[in-house]
């Protein structure tokens, strides 16, 4: 598994003399700034649960299969079925399904999270990489959420909100017991960290 991940890693593009740091998984996850001598955002420590891949795949298929099927049906019923449009429609459907199968794997490889005594830190994104940090002292609510598919696989999401409308941090697809424990700890830590009047 490690070898395949190394080969497929989208971070491995060759753009100049990059100094990427390899972490334990072999996935090159170092953040921006990796090419210079300055500081780099290091990847958060923890990966999401292995079960996230089937869960996300099912969730995406539930979304994309009807759309793809609708497109093909519309082509078949409402048009005079020209070849070029058929190729286009077929390509669209295959692309959707391909994304539904591939994206969860990419996300599982790339999404990371970490909770320290002072902050919550996550890394998400495949095409656009996003790192988020929120300090304990500014955390206002801690939520856990379980959709139907996630419940089937025993997973849960944890969302942490701050005073900002743009500041919610979501840690997706954790084992539900771990999620409950994490939420519990986060609330306790938030409680212990004096808040400020924001």
């Amino acid at each position: 598994m490690d070898l395949r991940m190394k080969r497929r890693d989208p971070g491995g593009h060759q753009a100049g003399p990059m100094r990427t740091v390899t972490d334990a998984d072999g996935a090159r996850l170092d953040g921006p700034g990796a090419r210079g001598a300055g500081a780099v955002l290091r990847p958060p420590r923890n990966r999401v649960d292995r079960r996230a891949v089937p869960v996300w795949t099912i969730e995406l298929l539930l979304l994309t299969v009807p759309v793809a099927a609708g497109a093909v049906a519309a082509y078949w019923i409402f048009t005079s079925r020209p070849v070029w449009l058929g190729v286009l429609t077929g390509g669209f459907a295959v692309l959707l399904l391909g994304l539904a199968v591939h994206t969860p794997r990419a996300h599982h490889r790339l999404n990371r999270w970490e909770v320290t005594g002072e902050a919550v830190y996550t890394r998400t994104g495949w095409f656009t990489h996003v790192w988020r940090v929120a300090p304990m002292s500014r955390i206002q609510t801690v939520d856990t959420e379980r959709g139907p598919v996630k419940r089937l696989f025993g997973l849960a999401d944890v969302t942490v909100t701050t005073a900002s409308a743009a500041g919610a941090i979501k840690i997706e697809a954790l084992d539900h017991e771990l999620a409950a424990e994490l939420a519990e700890r986060l609330t306790a830590m938030t409680q212990a960290t004096p808040g400020d009047a924001t």
Partner: peptide, 23 residues
Amino acid sequence: VGWTVSESYFQRRLGLITVSATT
């Protein structure tokens, strides 16, 4: 009250990032 650092595919190739302060 937090930071969001993002780096799109195109930004990555140019060594750029967008740093967003949440408030």
